[in-house]
């Protein structure tokens, strides 16, 4: 008689989910549960096509002090031997960060893998499922490493935005600069509200007061509280920063064609 480690019950005594006559078909839900996963799949696919197209384009990404986030840091002079678009040397970093992000995992497991597409909608059944326990999804556990490499890229994007304020020996301001700064704010809210960041700065502690065991200001607790504030809106940061990075790139692309649309304020 075989027995799992989880309980002392023999396999034959494990309960089974109810099937017909109480349950028939994938779900009893009557609402439009399919709308959300469909929209998410549509937007992800559209973003993926756009980003890939822009990376392949390998043109119209830099004008004056402005540099597209898809091509930042600008590596074309550092790796002249690289035969493809330099964007491919960079895009794997935000891609790996977003692909292993706990929010995006929920979104694409539902939308692309339909595991499950919505709550109580059982498209796939059977015991073959192993989730993130085995390859390739066990690699999701490397999310914190993606966070480590995404953070310097974010700092470089901040530098890209700030350097558009001062060039040719004087201060400048344009609508495009404001867009780049807004993009950095949204990306920062997303990056520093990440669950891995929340764990690293203090979530891993069981006791914020130990070992001194006295109630005073504790840096780990304060850092954890701050990241938690961002983390509570992680989904919103994820979406707004995804749109902002694409729109910033699009704006810079058209500014390369017509520099007047940067709308120089001074």
């Amino acid at each position: 008689m075989t027995q799992s480690q989880l309980t002392d019950l023999p396999e034959s005594k494990l309960p089974q989910s109810n099937a017909v006559p109480a349950y028939e078909g994938p779900t009893s839900r009557k609402d439009n549960w399919w709308v959300e996963p469909f929209l998410i799949a549509f937007v992800f696919t559209a973003f993926g096509i756009y980003a890939t197209g822009r990376a392949i384009e390998n043109n119209l990404y830099e004008v004056g002090p402005y540099l597209s986030p898809f091509y930042s840091p600008n590596l074309k002079e550092f790796v002249p031997w690289w035969p493809l678009s330099p964007a491919f040397l960079i895009l794997w970093i935000p891609l790996s960060f977003r692909a292993t992000c706990y929010y995006y995992r929920k979104a694409y497991y539902r939308s692309y893998f339909m595991h499950p597409p919505a709550c109580t909608v059982g498209m796939f059944k059977g015991k073959g499922y192993t989730g993130e326990q085995s390859f390739p999804f066990v690699l999701q556990n490397l999310h914190r490493y993606a966070f480590y490499v995404a953070t310097p890229v974010l700092l470089i994007l901040w530098w890209d935005a700030i350097k558009t304020l001062y060039y040719d020996g004087s201060f400048h301001m344009s609508v495009l600069t404001l867009v780049m700064i807004a993009n950095c704010i949204l990306l920062s809210g997303y990056t520093f509200g990440c669950h891995a960041c929340r764990h690293i700065v203090g979530g891993k502690e069981d006791c914020f007061s130990c070992p001194s065991n006295e109630s005073k200001v504790k840096p780990a607790f304060q850092a954890w509280q701050l990241v938690t504030k961002f983390n509570e809106r992680h989904q919103q940061w994820a979406w707004t920063s995804l749109f902002s990075v694409a729109l910033t790139d699009l704006y810079i692309r058209y500014t390369c064609v017509d520099p007047n649309i940067a709308f120089q304020l001074f």
């Binding site: 494990l14 309960p15 595991h115 059982g122 796939f124 059944k125 015991k127 073959g128 499922y129 989730g131």
Partner: peptide
């Protein structure tokens, strides 16, 4: 869904 659809009550 791991318990409901995939019946992993042996392991999860």
């Amino acid at each position: 869904h791991v318990l409901r659809d995939h019946e992993r009550k042996d392991n999860f």
